[in-house]
């Protein structure tokens, strides 16, 4: 049975309320995210993705509407908002800018330390997460500013993972990395979810990246929630996605073209394996028709 972990009700956020520059960043968002899902959040620049995720851990407070974590309003007790931030770990865009400590170890320990854990527990968490993101002990005493871009990114993400949040939210975790670095981060996210069973939300521009890892896709368009559905169901609406100015995976594009050319194929295909199966099936059907 699935359990809802994060829920929003009529969430609306308006920037510069009461002035001439009033602008709704998100409008009437109703969502419920189930435990253990890996949700890919996609949308145009300025569609409200980043604003939305800043509500999940109470960095922003909604103009109207509520965010429920495990069934309780996160703003129920204003003084406890810090506890919400330990449960919903948000890793912002270009997280390497948040590094500040003298050593990698201390920087990763910053979050757990703020949780008020004892030394032993902090040490356990830091070591565990470092092993997980592939930073061995030789990194512990290095300055985070001496690392390469990809390594910095991993340290920063580890800093969030070390808090062992129930819900991990990553805003564009692959931005500015080379293809190899991207794959490392994407694998890391999948592994993390498998190992801890926690819910993961990933914001991305890249449909290809999202389609590789997500179980569900959330599409934001023009400050509103356009779709929240399984990957197949979302890609089945490729036409609408294209209309929103979003890119769809190359494979899905190919099948859309085949369909337009008059071939009887499915259009919710987004992996190589599915494509192979569908093409073989099409070939099979073709033969039958010929006979």
């Amino acid at each position: 049975m699935s359990v809802t972990v994060l829920e929003t009700k009529d969430l609306t956020y308006i920037y510069s309320k009461g002035t001439n520059y009033e602008l709704a960043a998100i409008r009437d968002i109703n969502l419920s995210i189930e435990k253990g899902e890996l949700v890919g959040i996609i949308g145009h620049t300025g569609s409200g993705k980043s604003t939305l995720i800043q509500h999940f851990n109470g960095i922003l407070k909604a103009t109207s509407g509520t965010v429920l974590l495990d069934g309780t309003d996160i703003w129920q007790d204003k003084s406890k908002i810090r506890n919400v931030r330990f449960k919903v770990g948000v890793c912002f865009q270009y997280p390497e800018y948040q590094l500040f400590e003298e050593t990698v170890y201390k920087d990763i320990a910053f979050g757990p330390k703020n949780m008020g854990l004892d030394e032993k527990e902090i040490d356990r968490k830091v070591r565990q997460v470092c092993e997980f993101v592939g930073l061995d002990e030789s990194y512990f005493e290095k300055s985070p500013f001496d690392l390469s871009g990809g390594e910095k990114r991993r340290v920063a993400i580890a800093g969030i993972m070390a808090m062992e949040p129930e819900v991990l939210v990553l805003d564009e975790p692959c931005a500015g990395l080379d293809p190899k670095g991207r794959n490392v981060i994407l694998d890391l996210i999948c592994e993390y979810r498998k190992k801890t069973g926690s819910t993961v939300l990933v914001v991305s521009h890249s449909m290809e990246d999202i389609s590789k890892i997500a179980t569900k896709i959330l599409v934001m368009n023009d400050s509103k929630l356009a779709f929240y559905d399984t990957v197949e169901n979302v890609f089945a609406k490729s036409d609408e996605l294209i209309e929103m100015g979003l890119n769809i995976p190359e494979i899905t594009k190919l099948f859309l073209k085949l369909k337009k050319a008059g071939y009887d194929v499915r259009t919710d295909i987004y992996t190589l394996e599915q494509a192979e199966k569908e093409l073989l099936a099409l070939a099979g059907r073709g033969k039958k028709n010929a006979q």
């Binding site: 810090r82 931030r85 770990g89 890793c91 997280p95 703020n114 969030i160 808090m163």
Partner: peptide, 8 residues
């Protein structure tokens, strides 16, 4: 915001 997210 980033540091707040880490519980600062």
């Amino acid at each position: 915001n980033a540091q707040k997210a880490r519980g600062a």
